[in-house]
Design a protein around this nucleic acid. Structure first.
Lengths: 212, 212
DNA sequence: TAGATTGTTAATCGATTAACAATC
DNA sequence: TAGATTGTTAATCGATTAACAATC
């Protein structure tokens, strides 16, 4: 089933569409035109229609889009109609913050296991999940259907752990370590490089002062 | 001093150059060619040279780039040669995780104040900084030279707080709330929408299974 | 001077916007 | 049927890559 390659730019816009449609749906809005949505989201109506038509004709001429239907369709494109089992590697401050974040669970991302190399916190529970030693990951992955690993460990060691996870059959890595993981391309990686994000903010603040 | 507009794509690549150059510098590497760097970073040499030449000619024909010098130059473009004072709005799990993250401080991003609306944690200290009620923000900003607010509060209320911060004279907002802040454009906003990042990962995993 | 590699122009590629025929 | 708005083609704009003259 040969499919047209979807550009990265389109993909990064999908979650934002999803967010706006979810809010509209919560407000009880039933239909919306690309024009109205474009004003809310501050993008062009043309772009919205082009983006959506990468995946199919979800609208209806003369009517617009049914909010609920479009919301569900985008959800399914994003794979949110399926459950994802996660393991958390690294139970430091950030790892714990993510583990405690309930909204992921609402979207079907369920943390099944937590692992840390620090012995002192082994056995401790975070939202009912016991922190285990790193050595248990392999066995845990054999016994549980784990999709995604959330990497919240320092960059030292991250590459090695990622390679291990790959060899255990992980399908996706949500990488918070400040390093690039070069894995086979069947293993999907999404990076969250917080310090790079902060630098971008700093750039914008710095550059705008100098302009004109 | 009219300057050429730098594209968003270029800006998002700068921190990654900075990271690689920092590592090379730590390893004691003195010079590097765009060709060598391109192999490490898996981008084209042409793109590296184009990107850098937006800001000036940092290299030398026949030699390449001096690692240390280029590192410093990019740092200064990113505004990392200046100190930034931050306040943290929202001392939940994520806020605390960020407050405890020491690397920001190393780069000159220093948390000066922490605010939360939850009375129970007022007075508690995080890395030596006392959590204060939200009502104190205005006064605090008058008495301290605050550049950046880190917004780690639920999306409800985030827009209102952001507008208040704007009126108190904040220059930049690092926004972790799942909502778009529409502020005057002299106030720079950098969004970190974690759930959208996770959805992108989910998309990639979902889409790759279906292809071909 | 010869070799290497930049800085920069030109060519290509891809993404966004505009326009409009199709159709609900 | 008339009006509205999509889906899609064409035009434009911008970003990436290739090529090479400049120069260290």
């Amino acid at each position: 089933m040969e499919e047209k390659e979807i550009s990265r730019a389109v993909i990064s816009r999908l979650p934002r569409y999803y967010r706006y449609l979810g809010e509209l749906n919560d407000e009880g809005v039933e239909r919306i035109s690309s024009q109205e949505l474009s004003e809310m989201m501050k993008v062009t109506a043309s772009q919205i229609r082009q983006d959506l038509n990468n995946f199919g004709g979800f609208g209806q001429q003369g009517y617009g889009y049914n909010v609920r239907h479009l919301y569900d369709e985008i959800g399914s494109i994003l794979g949110l109609d399926k459950k994802h089992n996660l393991i958390l590697i690294g139970a430091g401050n950030l790892g714990q913050a993510l583990a405690n974040y309930v909204n992921f669970e609402k979207r079907g991302f369920i943390i099944k296991g937590i692992f840390d190399r620090n012995e002192d916190i082994h056995g401790r529970e975070i939202r009912g999940i016991r922190v285990q030693p790193m050595e248990n990951i392999e066995q845990f992955m054999k016994e549980n259907d784990v999709d995604i690993a959330v990497l919240t460990i320092p960059k030292t060691g991250a590459v090695k752990i990622a390679e291990q996870l790959a060899s255990y059959g992980i399908r996706g890595i949500w990488n918070f370590a400040h390093i690039d993981l070069n894995l086979p391309e069947n293993i999907k990686v999404e990076n969250v490089h917080l310090s790079e994000s902060l630098m971008k903010l700093s750039y914008k603040m710095n550059a705008s002062g100098k302009e004109k």
